[in-house]
Design a binder for these strands. Structure first.
Lengths: 145, 145
DNA sequence: CACAATTCATACTATAATAATATGAATAAG
DNA sequence: CTTATTCATATTATTATAGTATGAATTGTG
């Protein structure tokens, strides 16, 4: 029941692009440095987000990435599912209709449905903007103290 | 973000013992048959539940297993954690106090905390008794129709 | 007492997933 | 034309998953 490093890094990457957005394109190199992540590993994550239409890129020198839309338009769920696939706690919830030969007798599926709903309810109701705000709040508090 | 087969089977095993409880000890063989699971695989799961004190056993011919306590005393969370370890979506939530060198800068941890709370809230509020009741309801409905 | 049924304890195996690193081609700015 | 960068793919090491296999220890029954 763990989120993979790719999923976690993808979220940090999106947040980094949101926080450091100045209109300019941002290099993987600088993201990797700020986030203390492997540049090459990020280069493996980025195409997944690009294909989903979440990132705009420019190649070549002075190239880089930026978010396609505003931070408010990305939920944590969108990002995690792009990287992890479905967040359902059991695979059988992914089949619609459910094809399990034991489906009629299955009682535990209700547990998994509730878990699934609870998970989705969290990740689909937090946006990257929320995280940016939290980041900024935190910065302010540090400054005051 | 998947529950392992061991976790799922453990839940079915506990439910099977609850539903089929007559006071007698129940053999792995019969559980495996009813649940359509590998006997040998169940024999790998059972010791984990036994060590946690959830099962009583008798060895030898006419031996078998039964629940140590009433179904109401087992939450889904107890069972899953016994098999899966922590259900936290990221490992860093398991360290108390958190040892991540990036903890102060970390914004995404709030996402993981919310997810963790949501997951725990579900699994810690469903008991095996709840599942037994659901099983019986289902049986009744089938009978009426 | 022997035997059959069972729990109990370990070892083994095959496959897939995870978490990267490595190599290098394509592109574009200066 | 050189350098910085994205883009594409291959490779590798480690761990986890999902079992199967072997056999010892125990105990009720004929």
């Amino acid at each position: 029941m763990k989120i993979s490093t790719k999923g976690r890094y993808a979220l940090r990457l999106m947040l980094d692009l949101a926080v450091n957005n100045t209109g300019e394109y941002i290099t993987v190199k600088s993201i990797a440095a700020r986030q203390e992540l492997s540049e090459k590993y990020l280069e493996q994550i980025i195409p997944m987000l690009s294909k989903a239409g979440y990132l705009k890129s420019i190649r070549g020198a002075q190239g880089g990435y930026k978010l396609s839309k505003t931070p408010k338009d990305y939920t944590v769920g969108m990002i995690l599912r792009t990287i992890e696939g479905s967040l359902a706690p059991v695979a059988c919830l992914e089949d619609e209709p459910n094809e399990c030969p034991r489906y009629d007798q299955c009682v535990t599926i209700d547990v998994w449905k509730q878990l699934n709903d609870a998970i989705n309810n969290v990740v689909d109701n937090i946006t990257v903007e929320d995280l940016v705000n939290k980041y900024k709040e935190r910065g302010t508090i540090d400054y005051i103290i």
